[in-house]
Computed example of a mutant assay.
Amino acid sequence: MIINITEAWDNMTIEAMLQSLHIPKKPMHELRMSKAITINDEPATLRSTIHTGDSLFLPIPEEKSAYKSSYRLCEVKYEDEHLAILVKPKGVKTHPNDMSESNTLLNHAIYTLDSEYVEPVHRLDQETVGLLLVAKNPFIKKILDRMLEDRQITRTYRAKVKSHLPLKTQTIDLPIGKDKFHPNKRRVSQTGDRAVTHIVSSNALGDGIAEVELTLETGRTHQIRVHLAAIGYPVLGDPLYSDSNLRQLSLESYKLEFIHPITQEKIAATLD
């Protein structure tokens, strides 16, 4: 993998740069033992100093994802050699439950993207439409996973609910666990995992419907759907958490924002 060194890493050692990216111990050790690191095509070690404009080569083991190609294209909102932002259609699963499946977004991504490694950094419910971030090599996957954990990737969602008035700006901090009576459902449970959703804005659309904009601090299964139902405003068309008999979930992942870990540029993609 080639990294063009930006001002953020000027005059740092390679090791310090990688530590700033929170690279785990195992890949860091593998790089420390490697004889193939170069700076501007000259041999280097993790103790070598890098400067703005340098071309750093890190020998990253090649890995392939096990997803079958669907031979179908998916919509790509952003792509570079490290990562991509895809659009997941409604009714399409993020990834297969077993590798014999071939009609999920990851199957389409393997066919579409210029990479044999494509892995999701987060997931979307099958009935949720919207933006999904994927990594194109295992090194970047580790970095993006840590960024998501440290809340350095902002995921903004839009949902429609039954309400004549806009919902109040608020933080919903309610733990979510499995519903022991329904294997596909989750519920607010004091023994569940901490789950935090922020309602950042809302507006009334008329006809007794309000649109809500939300961001996630955590990423539990069905988090937005469970949380909105818990405060009395289930997502319209949700067959699991409302009285809807239709699978027309009015929920979309419409914006992703983060600082690119390698280029240090701001990446902002929207569904519209």
Rank of each mutant, 00 (worst) to 15 (best):
Q190W: 05
Q19G: 06
Y117K: 08
A195K: 02
K35C: 06
V235L: 13
C74L: 10
Q170C: 11
H108P: 00
L131A: 06
P138M: 01
N184C: 10
A195D: 03
E81H: 15
R225Y: 10
I37P: 01
Y78R: 04
L216H: 11
D98E: 15
L56N: 09
M17P: 03
E7C: 06
L21I: 06
P261N: 01
Y241I: 09
S70Y: 00
N40I: 10
Y78Q: 05
V121I: 15
T128S: 11
E265S: 15
T156Y: 02
H227T: 10
D10I: 02
A204W: 01
R187P: 00
K160T: 09
S115N: 13
T38W: 04
R72L: 06
T112M: 11
V87W: 04
K178W: 04
T6D: 05
T156I: 15
Q248C: 13
A66W: 08
M147L: 08
Y233D: 06
L249E: 05
V226H: 08
G206E: 15
E81L: 13
I110P: 01
T263G: 10
H227D: 04
P183Q: 09
S202L: 04
I231Y: 05
D150M: 12
M17W: 04
D272H: 14
S100I: 12
H222R: 10
L144V: 03
G53D: 06
K88W: 07
V92N: 00
T38G: 03
Y254L: 01
G208T: 13
N11W: 05
L271C: 02
L249N: 01
L144H: 02
T169W: 00
N11Y: 11
K88E: 06
E75T: 12
P166M: 08
R247S: 14
T104P: 01
L46T: 06
L205F: 12
V76F: 01
I224F: 12
L133A: 00
T13A: 01
D54W: 05
S244E: 05
D243F: 09
L165C: 11
Q190M: 05
D41N: 14
T197D: 10
N245P: 00
F57M: 13
Y117V: 11
P183N: 07
L174D: 00
K90P: 00
A269M: 14
P89R: 00
R72M: 05
I39S: 11
R158A: 12
I209F: 15
E75L: 07
M1H: 11
T104I: 07
K142T: 05
E75F: 07
C74M: 05
K88M: 09
K136I: 04
T191V: 12
G53Y: 08
L86Y: 00
D179E: 13
Y78N: 01
P183E: 11
L133Y: 01
H227F: 07
D98W: 14
T49D: 03
L271T: 03
K266L: 15
L256K: 10
T13K: 03
M28W: 08
C74G: 09
E217M: 12
V161F: 07
M33G: 02
E30H: 15
Y241L: 09
L236R: 08
A204F: 03
M99W: 12
G192Y: 09
S20Q: 15
